[in-house]
Design a binder for these strands. Structure first.
Length: 740
DNA sequence: ATGGTCACG
DNA sequence: ACGTACGTGACCATC
């Protein structure tokens, strides 16, 4: 029997990337599904297939599918179409399905193909019809900016797109970004590249941009990087305050504003990581643009030939120019303009400012800390080698597994794909009985502190004695920001030894740290969004929410709650926020799944509104295909439509968690903007320098300490209006350890 | 490049 | 019978 095996993901990817993007009458992109279905029908006919087997290979059934939401959406669309066409005649399999082929089926599929035809718009033909050139002539550049400034409100093209071309340079062990030039585009016929050379410095271009921003909206890609060159008028002129209440969608074009295509594209689809200009070009314009890496490779752009540099930069500005109205319209349709213009865009400047400020890290202290660790690490190494009877690489999970579970014959729990699991939770069970395991655990902990923190952080201390992290605004699926090179959002806290690292982070002279964190912001958001009266009442009752929960769940007076009951209640509270599963809870508490389930049942009896809320958000997300935060941030959840059970379960947990984690992120962002602009407006010199999800750190001038701590706490607490109090606690200290 | 491990909220 | 808490990033070994 002839069987046609269809790798659906591959079919769709090939189709999507090999033809112009087009939409159906509902404005939904259908080109990927159309192309793939066309090929399936053709192949089935040509090969006289009697059976078609649709498979979703690995990249469909793991999280990477969410990396490209456009493709995931095509997959959903096509899967639905096929299932509808073949009706009940489906045999479900582990990661796909199959069906037998006959003329009726082929005809039904052909009908579906017709339904996917481009009844809507075929997007712009894939070519750059664009005059691209460069100029280094000062007079010509001045004239260019003068012309650009004519694009004022009322003009048809009332905005100017620019793109700043940078190159990462490695010099003396330090990486930095060099500005090579800037391209400008304000009509669809031409783009001009201005290299940084001679009289035309990056500063000069920045001044021109600042001036321009006074009268004209500017569009770019990755505006946070552009702030290194210029400060837009809207930032210097910004009125203090973002009101989270009664905000209505205004005419965002009535005054000049900056627009970042990257941030906008991220808001439309936060599941995709590594957005590049080329992705925006493809998704919104149907244009093929080379990726930076493909065009210039790993070597410096300086060494590339001039023509391709000019063309690349010009095309980027052109893409920014052409994509803006489309992404903006999309945001409007999704009711995300408020989130975009009032939260994300101003936030990008706050993040830039925090990166620029950085934080002092004392190199000598870090070195001393590392040396102290090394002494103990060496002792442990020796002791481990002795117990093992052989020297080996303790850092290698492979070697370690072989030593422990084969050579020494310890009872193994096989877990990972490639061999024995040596993860902490496995080793902890063995540690009481085997001294070598206890030593390994201690070694692991110390080695982590040494490599990632003691040595790792030292490498990032710059000439000003400070570490300047990158805060990334367009990475996470939930709306949180992330921190890289180095990550300052995972500095040790939970163990005392690790926590001591925080002593190397100190404020500059005459300053202290003010450090404020939200008290259980996610659980409070759950109370608000679920409208569970018991949970809301619990928060009005008092501070110890875990104790109160324990009291209610276990039916004992609050005063008689045992530490164990409180600990269990706390774990359930956390679990609820994550989108609980009885298995997950049982793992966390080291109890049986049955007991975990009992806890959950009791919890839901106590807080019935929470259960109803979770069911509601799941049903909602299933129907709409995405989840929503209080401030309108969306997270598409294609996993909810997956054929694989595990994937669907994951989708449900995401549907429960994303609105809560995402709303917390929204609220923190509002607080950051208001803290930043209020510091500025009140002419305080203290500077916001770190954000760790529910915590803000301000490097505070001692004379301003009282004002700043009050301001910080106040702005955090009033960033949102919930039906429970929103509390922030602030501490001061002469280092980060002390301020926490 | 990928997987295992572990640091944080 | 499956194999599981949500969201990140860095380092190391191994392929």
């Amino acid at each position: 029997m002839d069987k046609l095996i269809v790798n659906l993901s591959e079919y769709i990817r090939n189709a999507y990337y090999s033809m112009p993007v087009f939409t159906n009458a509902d404005d939904r992109v259908v080109s990927g599904a159309y192309g793939a279905l066309f090929k399936i029908i053709n192949s089935a006919r040509n090969e006289n297939a009697e059976l078609i087997e649709i498979v979703f290979p690995a990249d469909m059934s793991d999280n990477s599918s969410t990396n490209n939401n456009a493709l995931a959406d095509q997959t959903v669309l096509l899967t639905d179409s096929i299932r509808e066409a073949i009706g009940e005649a489906v045999t479900d399999m582990e990661s796909g399905f199959s069906f037998s082929v006959n003329d009726n089926v082929l005809n039904a599929l052909s009908d579906k193909l017709a339904a996917l035809s481009p009844t809507g718009q075929v997007k712009a033909a894939p070519s750059f019809n664009l005059s691209m050139r460069s100029t280094s002539d000062l007079g010509e550049v001045d004239e260019l900016f003068r012309k650009a400034s004519d694009c004022g409100p009322g003009d048809k093209n009332n905005y100017v797109a620019f793109y700043i071309l940078t190159d990462t340079v490695n010099k003396d062990d330090t990486k930095y970004k060099e500005i090579l030039g800037m391209s400008v585009c304000f009509n669809e016929n031409e783009a001009i590249y201005i290299p940084v050379e001679n009289f035309i410095t990056a500063d000069y271009l920045g001044k021109k941009l600042s001036e321009l921003s006074n009268s004209v909206s500017l569009v770019t890609f990755d505006i946070k990087e552009s702030y290194r060159v210029f400060t837009p008028f809207e930032v210097s002129d910004r009125d203090y305050g973002y009101s989270c209440k009664g905000e209505h969608t205004e005419d965002y074009k009535s005054k000049p504003r900056c627009f970042d295509d990257l941030i906008a594209a991220y808001l439309v689809n936060p599941n995709k990581n590594d957005y590049e200009v080329s992705d925006v070009a493809k998704e919104y314009l149907g244009l093929s643009l080379e990726k930076k890496i493909d065009l210039f490779g790993k070597k410096s752009i300086r060494e590339a030939d001039d023509k391709s540099v000019v063309q690349y930069a010009c095309k980027c500005a052109f893409v920014c120019f052409k994509a803006e109205p489309l992404i903006c319209k999309k945001l409007e349709k999704l009711q995300m303009l408020d989130l975009f213009y009032n939260i994300e865009m101003p936030l990008s400047y706050v993040l830039y400012s925090m990166e620029k400020e950085g934080i002092i890290a004392r190199r000598d202290e870090l070195k001393a800390y590392g040396d102290k660790l090394q002494i103990r690490i060496s002792e442990l190494e020796k002791s481990i080698y002795e117990a093992a009877g052989v020297e080996f690489n303790i850092n290698s999970p492979k070697q370690l597994g072989e030593i422990l579970f084969e050579r020494l014959g310890l009872p193994a729990e096989k877990k990972t794909k490639s061999g024995y699991s040596t993860a902490a939770d496995v080793l902890e069970k063995l540690a009481p009985d085997y001294p070598i395991v206890a030593d390994i655990l201690e070694y692991r902990g110390l080695a982590k502190l040494k490599s990632t923190y003691a040595d790792g952080l030292a490498a990032y201390i710059e000439e000003d004695g400070r570490i300047h992290t990158s805060f990334n605004q367009t990475i996470t699926a939930t709306g949180r920001i992330s921190s890289t090179e180095p990550n300052l959002q995972n500095i040790p806290m939970r163990t005392e030894l690790g926590r001591l690292i925080r002593k190397v982070f100190v404020p500059k002279e005459d300053h202290v740290f003010a450090d404020a964190d939200y008290s259980q912001i996610e659980l409070r958001i759950l109370a608000h969004m679920s409208e569970d009266q018991e949970l809301i009442a619990a928060y009005h009752e008092g501070k110890d929410i875990h104790g109160i929960t324990a009291s209610k769940v276990f039916h004992v007076p609050f005063e008689e709650v045992t530490p164990l009951q409180r600990r269990n209640a706390k774990a359930v509270n956390f679990g609820i926020v994550y989108g609980i599963s009885s298995f997950g809870l049982s793992q966390d508490l080291s109890i049986s799944v049955k007991e975990a389930k009992e806890y959950m049942d009791k919890y839901f009896e106590t807080y019935p509104g929470v259960k109803a809320y979770q069911e509601r958000v799941i049903a909602d997300a299933k129907e709409k295909g995405y989840s929503l935060t209080m401030f309108g941030r969306r997270r598409p959840i294609p996993e909810l439509k997956a054929s694989n059970y595990m994937m669907r379960q994951f989708g449900e947990r995401v549907a429960m968690n994303a609105p809560i984690q995402g709303t917390a992120a929204d609220i923190m962002k509002i607080a950051m903007i208001n803290v930043y602009f209020r510091l500025k407006k009140e002419k305080l010199v203290s500077k916001l320098i770190l954000q760790i999800h529910d915590e803000l750190v301000i490097e505070t001038l001692k004379d301003e300490e009282e004002k700043v701590t009050a301001l910080l706490t106040q702005e955090m607490e009033r960033a949102a209006d919930l039906s429970v109090p929103l509390l922030a606690e602030c501490h001061s200290g002469t280092d980060w350890y002390e301020a926490k």
